[in-house]
Computed example of a mutant assay.
Amino acid sequence: MAPRRPDSPRRSLWQWLGSALLTVSAILGAVAIVTVAVCAVFGLRPVVVISGSMEPTLPVGSLVFYRTVPAADVVKGDIVTVPRQDGGTGLITHRVKEVTTKGDVTTLRLKGDANATPDPLPYVVSSVGSFVGVIPVAGTIALAARTPLGIAAVATYVAALVAVIVFGRRRPAARKRRQAGHLPAE
């Protein structure tokens, strides 16, 4: 590490905080942009794991990515995401235990890895979400950001970022006057 030049000004707490917040924001922004771009280019869709039926393969709070494929392409052992068949809303992500195709109709029997028995109802589908990958914990963060507390946390972060940017900048004119000896050092 190079020694600090005697004529270079010391960085204030605001500048350090601003630098850290800007760096974290840039990294998070880049990750978000890359994730959205990859999903768009490769036709991926995200879904959050909200139950432990697929643990340890897919832990609760994971963000799972899937690609829509014809149901006839599915084989036993694949992990798929399908609409619930029990009248509930939402999706189910389980492992395929049995595939039956008759003409254009494909029926799947699914089972969660952590479940003792297969799902009670068969899934009659023409297409499924075929598992592509998983990011542990990312789903928890995504869901938390949608709660009132999460929204407040994001708003606080943005406000802190704006405050650091606005109040943490040294004014070039003030710096020049300070260097000329007209203003006291901070």
Rank of each mutant, 00 (worst) to 15 (best):
M1T: 15
A2F: 04
R5F: 12
S12A: 11
W14P: 02
W16E: 07
W16F: 12
S19W: 15
L22I: 03
S25N: 15
I27V: 15
G29R: 12
A32D: 04
A32Q: 04
I33H: 07
I33A: 15
I33V: 15
I33F: 07
V36Y: 09
V41L: 15
F42N: 03
I50Y: 03
S51N: 03
G52D: 09
E55H: 10
V60E: 14
S62P: 04
L63E: 08
L63S: 06
F65I: 04
Y66L: 04
A72G: 09
D73T: 15
D73I: 00
V74K: 01
K76T: 07
G77A: 00
I79P: 00
I79M: 00
V80R: 01
T81Y: 03
V82F: 14
P83K: 05
R84C: 11
R84V: 09
R84G: 00
Q85G: 13
D86E: 01
T89Q: 14
H94G: 08
H94E: 02
R95L: 06
R95E: 11
E98P: 02
V99R: 14
T101M: 07
K102R: 14
G103H: 11
G103S: 09
T106K: 15
G112Y: 11
G112F: 12
A114H: 12
N115Y: 12
N115E: 05
N115S: 07
T117N: 09
T117Y: 07
P118M: 01
P118G: 06
P120Y: 03
L121I: 06
L121A: 12
P122E: 10
F131V: 06
F131C: 07
V134F: 00
V134N: 15
I135L: 11
P136C: 07
P136H: 05
G139R: 05
A142W: 04
L143H: 01
A144C: 02
A145H: 05
R146N: 07
L149E: 10
G150M: 09
V154M: 13
A155L: 09
Y157Q: 00
A160Q: 01
A160C: 13
L161A: 11
V164R: 04
I165G: 10
G168V: 09
P172V: 08
A173P: 02
A174T: 12
R178P: 03
Q179S: 02
Q179N: 08
G181Y: 11
G181E: 09
H182Y: 10
E186R: 14
